[in-house]
């Protein structure tokens, strides 16, 4: 019988306490962020969308080789030695390769960060951008190589010129060779004769 009244008292007191707890929460500031209007501040080192700074890239392909899922696609073109239209990286390194294509497929990326470590110029890194949603999967392939048309043309011309020069040099050499040979064969003939 005492248990019965104890139960009643316990029920009343616990009910009062729990009502008090919820009433307190009724007036505490809510934790909700109105998402499209307000946003969370991302931690500085969070791994969100990859970014590549084309101005600093030397086209060494180390990131593409490190990538475990091969989501980085790079095409480079070697420029002639005497061509210096590519300039230097911010670290003072001379750029020897024109990075024509630098695509990162964020649909494939697994955010491991292995590509960011080997980069000698620290030009590939994660940003805090996290809204990747697109209507088509292809839009997730980010093109980070904004090659100016002028530069491209210059490089191609330089390569063409170098090719021509090489060709000319090779032909010159060939001719020299054949000439030498014919001269020597003449001598031989002479000797034989």
């Amino acid at each position: 019988m005492t248990q019965y009244f104890q139960n009643i008292i316990e029920a009343i007191s616990t009910t009062a306490v729990s009502f008090g707890v919820t009433f307190k929460h009724l007036f505490t500031k809510s934790v909700t962020l109105q998402y499209p209007d307000e946003r969370w501040e991302m931690p500085e080192r969070s791994r969100m969308r990859l970014y590549m700074n084309w101005d600093d890239c030397i086209g060494c392909l180390k990131c593409a080789r490190a990538c475990p899922v091969d989501c980085i696609h790079i095409t480079t073109t070697k420029v002639p030695k005497d061509f210096d239209g590519l300039g230097e990286t911010s670290g003072g390194m001379k750029k020897r390769l024109l990075v024509e294509q630098f695509d990162i497929d964020m649909a494939e990326c697994l955010y491991c960060g292995l590509c960011t470590f080997p980069c000698p110029t620290d030009c590939i890194y994660f940003t805090t951008e996290y809204e990747h949603a697109t209507y088509e999967k292809g839009e997730l392939v980010y093109d980070y190589a904004p090659v100016p048309e002028q530069l491209k043309n210059d490089v191609y011309e330089a390569i063409e010129e170098e090719k021509k020069a090489k060709e000319a040099a090779r032909k010159e050499k060939q001719r020299q060779k054949t000439k030498d040979r014919s001269e020597s064969s003449d001598e031989d003939n002479d000797q034989e004769a």
Binding site: T22, H25, L26, T28, S30
Partner: peptide, 13 residues
Amino acid sequence: KVSGHIQDRLGPM
């Protein structure tokens, strides 16, 4: 609204 604020949310906004 009441349920939202009791759970520290905002409810419909």
